[in-house]
């Protein structure tokens, strides 16, 4: 058995001759919260549908728990819980009956229903028809359904889509708790970098069907090169002076910024400013937002 829980090789899906997902090599290891990030329409959901056997890859392979999905679909899916795109439910049934319909297929003890309702805090509402639920409650029911079979891998596609900030926070906390408390590995997709940044320890970024980044979240953050922002009297003169002394500084008629990171260089630059009798009001670090990195990587397109 390989060390990867999920491993895809050259996973490709073509629709009408166009590659919606192209050569994606996904690697998720045990205990990961893997953030699958990309703008809308980048191929996230298509990839996830192929991971769950809902759609067939045009070519490429999916291995989950070390087995090939195409050969052992049912065995693999027994250990996978999923929520794809938007929560699925039967509106005329109560939350309890919805879970019961799925429970009968999974053949797990009836007590699991109360347990998962407890986890997503729907116990009190469990006897109401789901069509009267708010979106947040439906989303939570979807997660409860995914958890029902005590999965070892949880696949959550845009689980916070359409939720209010409180709902988002709640789902996020729930996801973060999961690997420690239940020992599951999680694949969570989102088009919001800040979301993934707060949950995931590993990130894969996909755009136009291609994986453009896959590594620890730390590595992604390191790419956020910080800049030093200077607030001085007569910034334009200060800019000229600093350029003349060989510092890399930018002046955009509002802000003076320097592309520096190491402490010594900052110190000498500030000293130079003081020597030339500029008043230094503020020296502050401005770290490039992950959003900015993401935009750079995706070629400036996509909604964030």
């Amino acid at each position: 058995m390989s060390k990867w829980i999920v491993e895809t090789n050259q996973l490709t899906k073509k629709l009408g001759g166009k590659a919606v997902v192209s050569d994606v090599n996904l690697r998720i290891k045990e205990g990961d919260i893997y953030g699958f990030l990309g703008p809308n329409g980048a191929g996230k959901t298509t990839t996830i549908r192929m991971l769950l056997g809902l759609a067939k890859p045009t070519y490429g392979h999916v291995h989950i728990f070390g087995h090939e999905l195409a050969r052992k679909r049912i065995e693999i899916l027994r250990k996978v819980g999923s929520l794809v795109e938007y929560p699925s439910f039967y509106g005329h049934l109560t939350a309890y009956d919805n879970l019961e319909a799925v429970r009968r297929l999974l053949d797990v003890p009836r007590s699991r229903i109360d347990q998962v309702l407890e986890v997503v805090r729907l116990t009190k509402e469990a006897r109401r028809a789901v069509k009267g639920y708010s979106l947040g409650m439906k989303q939570r029911l979807g997660i409860a359904t995914a958890l029902l079979g005590q999965p070892q891998l949880l696949v959550l596609d845009e689980p916070t889509n359409g939720l209010d900030p409180a709902g988002i926070l709640e789902i996020r906390e729930l996801i973060k708790r999961m690997p420690q408390e239940h020992g599951v590995t999680i694949l969570v997709s989102s088009h919001l970098l800040s979301e993934i940044d707060q949950m995931a320890n590993r990130v894969g970024i996909i755009t136009k069907g291609k994986m453009i980044f896959q590594d620890e979240t730390q590595v992604l953050r390191q790419q956020a090169r910080s800049r030093i922002q200077l607030a001085v009297s007569e910034p334009e003169e200060a800019w000229r002076m600093l350029l003349a002394h060989g510092y890399h500084v930018d002046w955009d008629r509002q802000q003076l910024t320097a592309e520096l990171t190491d402490d010594k260089a900052v110190a000498t630059m500030v000293a130079a400013l003081v020597q030339h009798e500029f008043a230094v009001y503020r020296v502050q670090e401005e770290s490039a937002s992950l959003e900015q990195i993401f935009l750079n990587m995706t070629g400036g397109e996509g909604s964030l």
């Binding site: 769950l52 049912i74 938007y86 929560p87 439910f89 039967y90 509106g91």
Partner: peptide
Amino acid sequence: RFEHTGGGWKQLLALPVS
């Protein structure tokens, strides 16, 4: 209809059923 309206096909077919 149950399956079409609530996204049931996706849920149902992602479960360990043939």
